[in-house]
């Protein structure tokens, strides 16, 4: 065995467990679901399903599912934009201005939401956002005359809950690319007389774009399929989303095939968006 062959065996040995795991846990269940989505009913309990395209036809032709898709995409965009607006400056401050133990402490605070149970986190928001809840009381303590703030069971409440859950992704991915920027580039720009604004626009922002885009994808994709936050925080006004409707198909009426068809439609939309954005992303990353 020469060195080349030995390396190939080593690579195979190291990666095979991971690939086997992925095949078993992701590929097989997903294929089963894709198969179900073309059946009239789930093949359990001796039922005899037949092949059909009715689920996909129904999804593509009915206004309801178009409306739900649009609402979910808008939720994805709103949450992602909020995460960028809050997360990028925080990552910038952490990477460039905070040093030493303070940085460690702040990282801990950012990662904390990851360590708490998602359900507990979401329910704690119901206590915070309700009228006469924690936020409302705090505001009235400072400004007694303010009208009552009660945003629980509304679309904004859903966005608040989701931003809290996904903000760490944005901060971490942006931080990684921001702190990798070579300090001497910025110094060079300064020496040549560039003001802070120009340094940010011409050097910092383009070089941190990969992190920003990674964060965007990591947040946007799961948010458009989310169902727990809309269900608990959205109430009447904010719970109608594609994710909640998919959940209902599985847990309420046991219409697995239709739920599967909705899930794969959502997956197709995500792939389509990423596909359309790919050339643009590649160009941006290359120039960066």
């Amino acid at each position: 065995m020469n060195a080349d062959q030995r390396r190939r065996v080593a690579v195979l040995g190291l990666t095979a467990p991971a690939y086997l795991w992925l095949v078993l846990t992701i590929f097989l269940p997903l294929s089963a679901m894709l198969y179900f989505s073309f059946l009239t009913e789930a093949p359990f309990g001796g039922r005899q399903p037949v092949a059909t395209l009715a689920h996909y036809r129904s999804i593509l032709t009915k206004d309801l599912y178009l409306d739900l898709t649009w609402r979910s995409l808008r939720m994805g965009m709103d949450v992602t934009i909020a995460c960028i607006l809050l997360g990028y400056p925080a990552a910038l401050a952490l990477a460039r201005h905070v040093k030493g133990r303070w940085r460690e402490a702040m990282f801990l605070l950012i990662v904390l939401p990851f360590w708490s149970n998602a359900l507990v986190r979401t329910f704690s928001w119901t206590m915070t956002l309700r009228g006469d809840g924690l936020v409302d009381r705090a505001i009235h303590w400072v400004v007694p005359g303010m009208p009552s703030l009660d945003i629980l069971f509304s679309y904004p409440a859903v966005v608040v809950g989701l931003v809290h859950a996904y903000l760490p992704y944005m901060i971490l991915t942006c931080y990684v690319s921001l702190q990798a920027i070579d300090e001497s580039l910025i110094e060079a720009a300064r020496v040549l007389g560039a003001p802070g604004r120009t340094v940010f626009r011409r050097i910092v922002l383009p070089l941190s774009l990969p992190g920003l885009l990674a964060g965007t994808v990591l947040i946007f994709v799961p948010v458009i399929g989310s169902f727990m936050e809309p269900r608990i925080l959205g109430g009447v006004a904010g719970s109608a989303m594609l994710g909640t409707v998919i959940e209902e198909q599985f847990t309420r009426i046991f219409n697995w095939p239709f739920g599967a068809a909705l899930s794969f439609t959502l997956l197709a939309i995500v792939l389509l968006i990423l596909g359309l954005a790919a050339p643009f992303l590649r160009r941006t990353l290359r120039t960066a």
């Binding site: 309801l64 409306d67 739900l68 609402r71 006004a237 109608a240």
Partner: peptide
């Protein structure tokens, strides 16, 4: 019912 909830929203 899903259609009604979307209308509510």
């Amino acid at each position: 019912w899903d259609e009604t909830k979307a209308y509510f929203a």
